[in-house]
Design a protein around this nucleic acid. Structure first.
Lengths: 236, 236
DNA sequence: CGCCCATTTGAAAAGAGTCAAACGTAGTGG
DNA sequence: CCACTACGTTTGACTCTTTTCAAATGGGCG
């Protein structure tokens, strides 16, 4: 049965919640999980719908979106490979979850997953720790959204992206300029930072004009003067 | 030993995490917990300090504050009686926790508390559920902070306070005007909503001028036209 | 009674949003 | 291979909300 092999070649076997399970315990999950692909832009969970699935994100990136009744939107979280998707112990989904890129999920029925969780204290503890980290992250972001200027938000964001890209990005010298591709459109950056497309664009242009960053074209960004960028992101 | 009685007359015995414990299990906590009083304005935990204590809040109200290096502040969470205080599984505290009113805590050394948590799956599950709820709340607040207008924020806030006060508040008829005291200063409201004192004050005056609310004086507020207030808070 | 603190009010300035149009880039099909 | 199209980005001019700075008002308490 292919299902039994589902975890053997799992890209995130050691980073996802499953890392807390032994090979034999994994068999239990195997029987209830299934792989699922979603295309860029596809929505995995709609806010308000019954929260019936949980999943591990295998590849790609998802966004959690909160929206007002009149259509204003705010990205309230990003999910990366190995992150847990969905809300255990919740009746209705609070946020809409949509794929930012093509993505692959390892999906479980929520009720069944919850049962596994209850039987495996180590796994539940891992989920608790991740949830606590997500909570701290969300609260830190509240400070940014409410109190930082557009320039601070953009500078901060670029530094974070640089950090995440420093593995894949290309740089000439260890501490020299770093170039990488932003995996997001200006609009998506705005949705994350609580800004409009135009403001994002203008701030980028402004940083470029100040010689702090370069915009070689396409979706690429070069951090020419990291410490200057850090100054502009000063607000912790 | 007085310590053994610490839980017997606990005001939040059935609402706090301890509700998941039997009387006998409670004895274990009893041996490591102690009561502590803090005065209004006193800080319980400083951001950046080693996170060495956890606690249950018995009475009063605490605020979680995030701050930028140059002094801008944002309240990122409020704690009410029976809420859990502190960060399990965290090295350094991420936020400063300060008493908004005189308060009483039931304090545990973090390491010891963590051990109890690990021995009592039901308690850990309860903490997980609370943390998940706090995360949803924080994310919802991100939408408000980033996308709502000052008027929407204030209207929303007043409705929430009215809800929480509807038990204690005073009203003539079931669906008529409701009057209650705001337990916060304008400045603190601003810190919660991401606004300045002046903006909070102006919006309140504006709502009063529109006949939606009344400001009888002191810290009191009257909701005269609830549905009008709901209209102005329209953004979910 | 007077002082301290929170609140209110006013006027001016700044920051970001809105509307609108031009510009680039990438991918499609002739 | 080039033209066309669709989409994202940049730029400009203008508006509006909120902040900032400043001063007046008000209330509670010693």
């Amino acid at each position: 049965m292919a299902n039994l092999d589902i975890c053997r070649d799992c890209a995130v076997r050691d980073q996802a919640l499953c890392a807390s399970l032994s090979d034999t315990e994994l068999a239990a999950l195997n029987t209830i999980g299934r792989r699922q692909s979603v295309g860029r832009g596809e929505t995995v969970i709609w806010a308000g719908d019954e929260s019936i699935v949980c999943a591990n994100l295998l590849s790609g990136m998802l966004k959690l979106v909160a929206a007002t009744s009149d259509g204003r939107e705010q990205i309230v979280g990003l999910l990366h490979p190995a992150d847990f998707v969905g809300q255990a112990y919740a009746g209705l989904a609070d946020f809409t979850i949509t794929a930012l890129t093509d993505a692959e999920l390892c999906v479980f029925p929520r009720a069944a997953f919850q049962r596994v969780l209850e039987d495996h204290g180590r796994m539940e503890r891992l989920l608790l720790q991740r949830t606590l980290a997500a909570l701290s992250d969300a609260r830190g972001r509240m400070l940014s959204l409410a109190r930082k200027s557009a320039e601070e938000k953009i500078a901060d964001f670029l530094l974070q992206m640089a950090l995440r890209a420093s593995g894949t990005g290309c740089r000439a010298t260890p501490d020299g300029p770093l170039t990488f591709d932003l995996p997001l459109t200006r609009g998506q950056i705005g949705d994350i930072l609580g800004l409009t497309i135009e403001t994002v664009s203008r701030q980028m242009t402004r940083l470029k004009g100040a010689g702090v960053i370069g915009l070689p074209g396409g979706r690429a960004v070069t951090i020419s003067d990291r410490s200057a960028l850090e100054m502009r992101a000063r607000a912790a």
